[in-house]
Design a protein around this nucleic acid. Structure first.
Length: 941
RNA sequence: GCGGAUAUGGCGUAAUUGGUAGCCGCGCCAGACUUAGGAUCUGGUUCCGAAAGGAGUGGGGGUUCAAAUCCCCCUAUCCGCACCA
């Protein structure tokens, strides 16, 4: 029988679909396991071979867990909202919903061909109203919550309202935008508008004027993780800082829990580190510095430092250009210069600023602060190396021990004073230094009461002192910023928000979903409003709880609705929970479902989401946890990052003198006389060019001539990004058509460790294909004869190795193991049922189609998915004898074969009395004999 | 600049976690069966050397009877963050 994958694969794919083989429900009699892939954004380009890499790995694990008796939830869906479909709509007028629907159909077709075991009855799409209903619902809960620092959890905002009415802000310890202070009387005297404004300071979803990343080209704001190097991740358009009124999520309230949670999950260290860096927790102190002679009042400003121990070395202060104090403290003679500088700094784009990090700029305000510990006067400067967004936007500069302060001091010839030294007496003149001494190891010097202390002790001593004096406190700062949640775009979730005479209100939960309205035009309106400004039916009738035409707005019962939509990460932050109970119309997910499935046991996806989706989803989940909905605080227990698949481009070499002549890669004269040009990898096989297809590829090559080597044209290659313009995109469908899905699956795994980035290279796929054909042939005539001990050994070795490999996600070595097994069995000419049957189960996670076919041929009527994972019987692995290499002083000299049953002493005796050993020892007594069971015997003499 | 990772044949990789380096696959070489083969099977293939032998896991040092594996110092590549006080 020939291995006819073209017939067999569609047959079983249809059979699985018709029998709902992968449909899963809550089943208390079985242990649960949840395997999740990062759902794809359905782009117009379709899948390339990089996409399925992670899906294949997770599918193998999901199938394996099923065979081990687990009830496995393995769903798939689409992250369907996003910019490309909208950009396409702007260009062509085609509705994003149509584009998205079309792309999803294409994705589904491609995915189905690879034979995944997804439970498609649980599919979710973020753009589906029955799904985004719950995205909107979560937003309303965030809006109606504040974060209590004492309880370390989100609480209903109503509680806070009660507190304000009773005691104002007295004793309050909650997350907020700025520290407010008011009494109960004040609160009670305020009107609804003022109270709403104050509450915005505390809500977890809040509206505020904040500096945002504005991308004019895309017409929208972007989150920090959507901007890299001053340009947008999508499109690479310039991004500027701009103050805008935007919805934000107070993710900073969860900063500490986001750091702590990393210790509870099984992720790679590198990804945990990426998240820790992004959150950027740093411990230090906040200190108030009074300003000298600022009227009668003792004005002061707060700084943040991680080096309180260096406070005796402060020689100037620096405020960021946005600092509110600048205008009031600047002396009249410095006014023009300072104003010019501030204006210049504000007008610089983010890209310019980042590009010129090394350039030192700044200006003196003319004002002085007082060092609270030394009473010295310290000049106050303004410079853009101090950032408004971090700490308090003001620093105490210690040029001797901070490289940036050092550069600034050198540039403006400000004094530098050493207050830390590697040894208590190792003090030198900072004027002779080439760089600052930033290390935190060493001793304080010239530092009053902390002189002589180690840096760590000095830090604690200074903090204690300033706390005692009431001018500062120990504090923690985070680099993490609140997440900007508004996008001035069409294709996203509408906010369930309307504006009642300026006061934002959420629509009642029972009215959800608030469906995305139709618009005539996907561009911003003439007045600069977001695209939803074009929608006619887009106003909220409060009385009747429904969306109505916006010309009915009277601001008494009918109000305008929010025109922004939510960002891409809104829909992807909680989709994994929705899969647990995707059709529930009364809740995000039922209590039964979450109690059973708990959280995602295994999540597979790219590390590029480390500072975006994977942070937002953790935040979202912690919030759901605080609401009592999620039962586990961390959403993704184990995370595997599949490496990026790069492209492997092929080149032909065109002669510089003859445009029609192409010279093969290894022809000696080639390098100097040719230019490489990209050639489509689909007309190259193992770096050998298909000359006929090349001539047909493009009209200008139709008369191409070739200088060959060994009768072949050999192409050059290089690793580049996989992209259409490099002609190196490998489409999985082509490979499925040529080799079958099982070969593609095995080959993608065989390519190398799952976490490693690697170029796509089809050169080895033949080997995997040969293996499957060889495996198939093993089943030509299956006999019921008893297998030999040797055959059973091969089987049980394979069971052991494959099981271990899957458990540690080392799928490339499992494929090797299968190949060794097939080679061994072919050599042994095995046709024994008892050996071959378990092997079908073993290979089923990797090559489900061939396994299903063989399983049925062996007489089963149920799916191989219902089989049991074979057990390894160790008795077959025990060796009769072992061959020990014997070495002298570490050098291998001879080997000796001994029965497996001999003891250590017997083995050593056998070796030392052997003629070979006697020869080497030459009568000497061994100093030491090292015996490593089943490995080696080593003699030191 | 800071942080993380990686480095093994012509290529992708493996090494029971300190125990005979190079499994498996590609490619290449030779052979068998074939009218033929983009089919199948067998053998060989780290390098130098005709061989005996020697060298060898990016480079240098160290620990150890024994190091690809552990420690120190370099070098290169990739990734993340980047004026974060």
């Amino acid at each position: 029988m020939e291995y006819n994958f073209n017939e067999l694969e569609p047959k079983w794919q249809a059979w699985w679909r018709d029998n709902q083989t992968y449909k899963v429900d809550i089943d208390g009699s079985k242990p649960h396991f949840y395997v999740l892939d990062m759902f794809p954004y359905p782009s117009g380009a379709g899948l390339h071979v990089g996409h399925p890499l992670g899906y294949i790995a997770s599918d193998i694990y999901a199938r394996y867990k099923r065979l081990r008796g687990y009830n496995v939830l393995h769903p798939m869906g689409y992250d369907a909202y996003g910019l490309p479909a909208e950009q396409y709509a702007i260009q062509t007028g085609q509705h994003p919903a149509v584009t998205t629907e079309h792309n999803i159909a294409r994705y589904r077709e491609q995915l189905d061909k690879i034979g995944f075991s997804f439970d498609w009855s649980r599919e979710v799409r973020t753009c589906d109203p029955s799904y985004y209903k719950w995205t909107q619902w979560t937003f309303i809960q965030l809006f109606n919550s504040y974060y209590c620092n004492q309880a370390s959890q989100a609480r209903p905002i109503a509680e806070l309202v009660d507190v304000f009415a009773k005691q104002g802000t007295e004793g309050l310890d909650v997350a907020c935008t700025e520290q407010l202070s008011f009494s109960a009387d004040e609160w009670n005297s305020w009107d609804a508008a003022k109270r709403s404004q104050v509450l915005m300071n505390y809500r977890l979803a809040y509206l505020a004027d904040i500096p945002v990343n504005w991308c004019a080209e895309l017409g929208t704001v972007l989150a920090n993780d959507e901007v890299v190097g001053g340009v947008s991740v999508r499109g690479g358009y310039p991004v500027e800082r701009k103050l805008m009124r935007q919805w934000s999520l107070r993710i900073t309230a969860y900063a500490q829990r986001l750091v702590d949670g990393l210790d509870q999950v099984d992720w790679t260290d590198s990804l945990k580190e990426i998240q820790r860096n992004w959150i950027g927790r740093s411990e230090g102190a906040a200190v108030w510095f009074p300003i000298k002679g600022c009227g009668d009042q003792q004005a002061a400003f707060e700084i943040f430092t991680t080096r309180p121990d260096t406070i005796f070395g402060v020689t100037f202060m620096v405020l960021c250009p946005e600092h509110e104090l600048i205008s009031s403290i600047t002396t009249p003679d410095r006014k023009t210069e300072v104003e010019d500088y501030v204006a210049w700094a504000k007008n610089r784009s983010e890209r310019e600023r980042q590009a010129e990090v090394k350039k030192v700029s700044g200006v003196f305000t003319g004002a002085y602060a007082i060092n609270p510990l030394t009473n010295e006067q310290i000049p106050i400067w303004v410079s853009d190396y101090v950032l408004a967004g971090y700490g308090t936007g003001a620093i105490m500069a210690v040029p001797a021990h901070d490289s940036r302060d050092f550069a600034f001091a050198r540039h403006f010839e400000l004094p530098i004073r050493q207050v830390v030294a590697p040894e208590p007496d190792a003090v030198s003149d900072p004027a002779t230094w080439d760089e600052s001494l930033d290390s935190k190891t060493g001793y304080s010097v010239n530092s009053g009461f902390v002189s002589g202390m180690k840096v760590k002790e000095a830090m604690a001593a200074v903090i204690n002192k300033i706390e005692e004096m009431g001018i500062g406190r120990r504090t923690v700062n985070y680099r993490l910023r609140d997440a900007i949640f508004s996008r001035q775009r069409y294709w996203g979730e509408p906010f369930p928000v309307y504006y009642k005479n300026g006061i934002p209100c959420t629509i009642p939960e029972q009215c959800l979903p608030l469906e995305l309205p139709e618009v005539k035009d996907f561009k911003p309106t003439a007045t600069g409003e977001p695209p939803l400004g074009h929608a006619e039916i887009w106003a909220w009738d409060e009385k009747n709880c429904k969306v109505v035409n916006k010309n009915l707005i009277d601001n008494e019962t009918v109000f305008p609705l929010e025109l922004s939509t939510m960002p891409g990460f809104a829909g992807s932050s909680g989709y994994y929970m929705r899969y647990m109970d995707p059709h529930n119309n009364n809740a995000y997910f039922s209590k039964d479902a979450v109690d059973y499935w708990q959280n995602v046991d295994l999540y597979v996806g790219g590390a590029e989401h480390g500072t975006g989706h994977l942070i937002y989803a953790r935040f979202w989940n912690k919030f759901l946890f605080d609401l009592g909905l999620a039962v586990r605080e961390e959403p993704f227990q184990k995370l595997i990052n599949q490496g990026m698949i790069q492209g492997r481009s092929n080149f032909v070499y065109r002669s510089k003198t003859d445009n029609n002549l192409f010279i093969s890669k290894n022809v000696e004269s080639r390098p100097a006389n040719t230019v490489p040009i990209h050639v489509d990898i689909n007309i190259v096989d193992n770096d050998v060019l298909d000359i006929e297809r090349f001539r047909q590829w493009r009209p200008e090559f139709k008369d191409a001539k070739f200088e060959l080597e060994d009768g072949k044209y050999i192409c050059g290659w290089e690793v580049e990004k996989m992209s259409k313009s490099m002609f190196n995109v490998q489409n999985p469908d082509d490979l499925v058509a040529r080799y079958g899905a099982d070969t593609l699956r095995l080959y993608e795994m065989f390519l190398g460790p799952i976490e490693q980035a690697k170029p796509w290279d089809t050169n080895g796929i033949e080997g995997v294909f040969r293996f499957l054909k060889k495996f198939w042939r093993l089943y030509d005539n299956v006999s019921t004869a008893e297998p030999t001990k040797a055959e059973l050994k091969i089987l049980h070795q394979t069971i052991k190795k494959v099981t271990e490999d899957i458990e540690r996600f080392s799928f490339n070595t499992s494929v090797s193991t299968f190949m060794i097994c097939a080679n061994d069995l072919t050599a042994a000419k095995t046709d024994k049922m008892a050996v071959l049957e378990p092997l079908v189960v073993l290979i089923a996670p990797f090559a489900p189609h061939i396994a299903e076919e063989l399983w049925h041929r062996l007489g089963h009527t149920e799916s191989v998915c219902a089989a049991q994972w074979p057990k390894c019987d160790e008795q077959y692995l025990v060796e009769d004898s072992f061959t020990y290499p014997v070495s002298f002083n570490g050098k291998m000299r001879f080997t000796i074969s001994l029965p497996a049953s001999v003891s250590q002493t017997e083995a050593i005796a056998a070796v030392t009395s052997s003629p070979d050993c006697q020869k080497w020892l030459a009568g000497a007594t061994p100093k030491k004999v090292i015996f490593v069971p089943k490995k080696i015997i080593n003699i030191v003499y």
